[in-house]
Design a protein around this nucleic acid. Structure first.
Lengths: 105, 105
DNA sequence: ATAATAATTTATAAATTAATAATATATAAA
DNA sequence: TTTATATATTATTAATTTATAAATTATTAT
């Protein structure tokens, strides 16, 4: 190839890396469905199950992934576990996606 | 679980599906780097290689994926292939990501 | 024609993610 | 304290994605 000017490739890759780890988590239909629901506010697992038709163990699994990456936070109340979105970045991306695909309507 | 009201789950899943197929393509560090570059305008493969340090066959492979999903379009000029972003949705998402992580600066 | 440059394609192994089923834990009600 | 409900965890297999290397095509210049 010809010689072109190289400018702060590492900085760009670093940004891309950060954005990418978030996108990898969003890039799953179940998780996206769950986050869609949570953009409307806190919901417990049963509510999420009813709103998404995702079977319970799968749902719990995906919530665990979201929890571990600090995308959502949990609040326990009796035998119910309530989830809500914890990441401002995710809220913003979900907003953009919602306006493009209507997935948070 | 308790019984909750179910409303248009299928419609939401459909939206999530669409958004998800786009996110799956963005959720790769190399592809994201390339799209970052292309938000600045059309670039040929050599320029993309220099700007990203992605080795050429990998780069070509990822561009093929982006092309097949109509995320980018190609313009051939002599022995150079110029790429640019073809999807308005992707432009919007990249813009949001750029404002959050600075990856299109 | 031959060589050089720009880019793509193909193949394969390794790694990651998703799908599914079974089991376990925690809280509350009977 | 047994039972039911809500939720989480673990294990296993299947599928998808990524990484890497080798070979090929296309265009231009010599």
């Amino acid at each position: 190839m010809t010689d072109y000017k190289i400018q702060n490739v590492d900085a760009i890759r670093d940004s891309a890396g950060q954005a990418c780890s978030m996108l990898k988590i969003l890039a799953n239909e179940d998780r996206l469905m769950l986050l869609c629901q949570l953009t409307q506010g806190e919901k417990n697992v049963g509510e999420l199950e009813a709103a998404t038709n995702i079977q319970q163990p799968t749902l719990s699994q995906q919530l665990t992934i979201l929890r571990k990456d600090n995308i959502v936070k949990i609040r326990k109340d009796g035998k119910f576990n309530y989830y809500s979105i914890a990441s401002d970045e995710v809220i913003q991306v979900m907003q953009t996606l919602g306006s493009l695909y209507g997935c948070n309507k």
